[in-house]
């Protein structure tokens, strides 16, 4: 099993640009499935950033993406990601 398959515990996942996060915790507090939590580590600016602590609960609803004031996080459903990947890897007709 790849690392990714291992991570596919829930219906979706989140992507974080760690370096632009300011640790406001909007995404963590308002995640409808409480899947996010603060990292123990600091980012280069000295803020804790969100990590997917309970990956199995993430639905990829992207509400975190909508809340984020720093454009640092967004969520996506695995289903949609797979479709996108497939579309990207399928050679386009000349």
């Amino acid at each position: 099993m790849s690392a990714e398959d291992d991570a596919r515990k829930g219906k979706g996942t989140v992507f974080v640009r760690v370096e632009v996060c300011k640790g406001c915790s909007f995404c963590i507090d308002f995640c409808p499935s409480h899947a996010l939590e603060f990292s123990r580590e600091f980012n280069p600016k000295g803020y804790h950033f969100p990590v997917l602590g309970r990956a199995e609960d993430c639905t990829g609803c992207d509400l975190c993406g909508l809340y984020c004031p720093d454009f640092a996080i967004f969520g996506a459903r695995w289903k949609d990601l797979d479709e996108k990947r497939q579309a990207a890897s399928t050679p386009t007709q000349p």
Binding site: D6, A7, T13, V16, V18, S39, V51, G65, A76, L81
Partner: peptide
């Protein structure tokens, strides 16, 4: 962190925040 490493492994570099 480990979780971040694991997570970054699943990030597609071509995929950016839609905004």
């Amino acid at each position: 962190s480990e979780s971040l490493d694991l997570h970054l492994a699943s990030v597609e570099t071509s995929l950016d925040n839609p905004v």
